[in-house]
């Protein structure tokens, strides 16, 4: 009964205060829009850093003239290391071919050169979750001790830089995300507070003619719920539209072919919607509380 009365009164109320309702919804969606865009950006940045890190492999150069039968044994040994995802053997002939294609038009310089002059090598792809920088250093050091190995290369500077960069990025993202969240919460809570205060007289009169607090609060809370839902829905739709557009643009351009965008995971979407709803409903309930005492 109280729910149906509240719903009916909420509808009448929304009709009567339509401009204010739209304003509040806009404020909610704009505040969330900034936050949501930021989430999209930081998630894609994180993915990019991760993917880039995964592509950095470890290369083990073998000494010249290793007997062929030793190759599979070494292959097994490397594959057996914890955190190694894939190992590829690059024979001297294959290395020569790569060099040729790299040199393109200047490949004449290789004429007459023995196609076996380059050392054979293993290219190792590591799981970045297991292989942090310290572990890579350690494993590289171990492999370097093997008698068949001449050198281990692991893009040391790159890893160092990447590690430092993603560490800073993670901190910046966390801090600005938190600040954006606080700002959004502050703006939304204050907008709601002002709209409730603007109707203070109405609340007092309702109390004076014998309305219970739930009767008074019902429609307000339903409206807040709808504002939270609509506000976050609008923000997420705009961000999704932008995402879909960018995705299409990137797919069409050859330059960013390998650059994949991803949308917010559903947990983020759920968190944004529910925190928006909770913020609006709680903000309304708190703002109303002081007018419902006497």
């Amino acid at each position: 009964m109280i729910i149906s009365i509240s719903l009916r009164r909420a509808l009448a109320d929304i009709r009567q205060h339509f401009p204010t309702q739209i304003m509040t919804t806009m404020v909610v969606s704009l505040s969330l829009l900034i936050l949501t865009f930021f989430c999209l950006f930081s998630i894609n940045l994180q993915h990019f850093v991760e993917r880039f890190g995964n592509e950095l492999g470890v290369v083990v150069f073998l000494k010249q003239g290793i007997p062929q039968e030793r190759i599979p044994i070494l292959y097994q040994k490397i594959t057996g290391l914890k955190g190694v995802e894939a190992v590829k053997y690059v024979s001297p002939e294959e290395a020569f071919k790569r060099l040729q294609s790299y040199l393109k038009d200047e490949r004449e310089v290789l004429e007459g050169v023995d196609p076996r002059f380059l050392p054979p090598s293993f290219e190792i792809q590591v799981n970045r979750a297991v292989f942090n920088l310290a572990r890579i250093k350690q494993v590289a050091g171990e492999i370097e001790q093997w008698p068949e190995v001449s050198k281990v290369q692991y893009g040391r500077e790159w890893i160092d830089r990447l590690e430092a960069f993603s560490g800073i990025v993670r901190k910046i993202v966390a801090i600005s995300g938190l600040l954006l969240m606080l700002t959004a919460a502050f703006v939304v809570a204050n907008t709601i507070k002002l709209t409730v205060y603007a109707r203070q007289e109405e609340l007092e009169i309702l109390r004076l003619v014998g309305a219970t607090n739930s009767f008074i609060q019902g429609p307000f809370l339903i409206e807040a719920f709808l504002q939270g839902l609509a506000g976050s829905g609008i923000a997420l739709s705009i961000v999704f539209g932008t995402y879909a557009y960018l995705e299409k643009m990137l797919g069409a351009s050859s330059m960013f072919k390998n650059f994949e965008l991803s949308f917010l995971p559903w947990q983020y979407v759920a968190a944004i919607i529910s925190s928006s709803v909770i913020l609006c409903v709680m903000g309304t309930a708190l703002a109303m509380r002081r007018f419902l005492r006497l």
């Binding site: 109405e202 109390r207 004076l208 014998g210 309305a211 219970t212 419902l292 006497l294």
Partner: peptide
């Protein structure tokens, strides 16, 4: 606080300043 509305339903108050909802 929860009983106040019950009291007020037993009392009809004509306020000196009316206390009407203007809109």
């Amino acid at each position: 606080g929860a009983q106040i509305p019950l009291l007020r339903r037993k009392i009809g108050v004509i306020f000196q300043d009316f206390k009407l909802l203007n809109n």
